[in-house]
Nucleic acid binder design. Structure first.
Lengths: 152, 152
DNA sequence: CACTATTTTTGACTTTAGCAAAGAAAATGT
DNA sequence: ACATTTTCTTTGCTAAAGTCAAAAATAGTG
């Protein structure tokens, strides 16, 4: 006995997620461009927190990219003096990537403004609808994330 | 008086959407690769319906890409005999892109299997949670989509 | 110390994408 | 009727994004 309801819901969600993805990619591209960044740079900066330091691999994993790609993204950020790259003392194979002061300032601004952009989109709907969005995306994110871990 | 609640919700949604995006991109990439397609080709095929025909511009608009990019994606699909490309008779400036039989078969399989993949992810949660996902993503998709129209 | 494993980088390559100009056809003005 | 403008697609060129395999450097192990 196959679950017809599941099939319907899966189809609908597949479709919607697909469309959402295209829109959000366009949104990210616009935002990055407006701030003089390449999309990959914006995506990278957005996940590094001030004060913390990261290995290349950590960044690669959390961005779902290859380490070699990260090396190049970091090269770019380093050239713009947004991140520091030092060899770890405990294990000199590791790089320790962290934000410079300039980087921290920029990332602060970036996060602020990117959240504002979303605030702008969300401001005309009810608190309840915003919560529905949060819940829906939260659930979906969890599912896709664990699915990826299993199937990668 | 600024809306603190809005700001919080916007931040949370920003973060989640960002993560969801990365995961879904990885998911699309895996799926396309498993089916011997380039990601752009998969994305394109996914939006063309059997029996209908599309102009280059229509496809470009709905994929949020430039017409020239689409020309090349279609080149690839045409080379694999998945789509036909004929000059429109009413207005010979237009191309009419449509699925070949081979293309229809493939797209049918693709849609089926891509929905199945999502069914796999969704099968262990409740119908209500699936509906929450649907509602949340639907709302968000609407917001981002209209935002894009205004700000492009 | 030789060997293996890990982390990052480099080189070569593919894929994705856009812009500007060219080409081709239609619409429009005179 | 025909020169001009507009519209749609393609082409050439370039940049950005991304991967893989091999090299380089370090750490761990028998």
């Amino acid at each position: 006995m196959m679950d017809v309801k599941l099939k319907q819901q899966a189809s609908a969600i597949t479709e919607l997620t697909f469309d959402l993805l295209r829109c959000c990619e366009a949104k990210e591209k616009m935002f990055a461009k407006d701030h003089g960044l390449k999309v990959a740079e914006f995506r990278c900066l957005r996940i590094v927190e001030a004060g913390k330091s990261y290995s290349v691999q950590e960044l690669a994993t959390s961005m779902h990219l290859s380490p070699s790609r990260l090396t190049r993204i970091i090269d770019g950020l380093f050239a713009e003096k947004l991140v520091d790259r030092v060899q770890s003392i405990e294990d000199r194979r590791f790089a320790k990537i962290s934000l410079t002061n300039k980087g921290q300032t920029l990332v602060g601004k970036l996060k602020e403004e990117y959240a504002d952009l979303h605030g702008e989109m969300l401001k005309d709907i009810s608190v309840e609808d915003r919560d529905r969005i949060y819940q829906g995306i939260s659930l979906m994110q969890g599912l896709v994330s664990t699915w990826l871990v299993k199937n990668a």
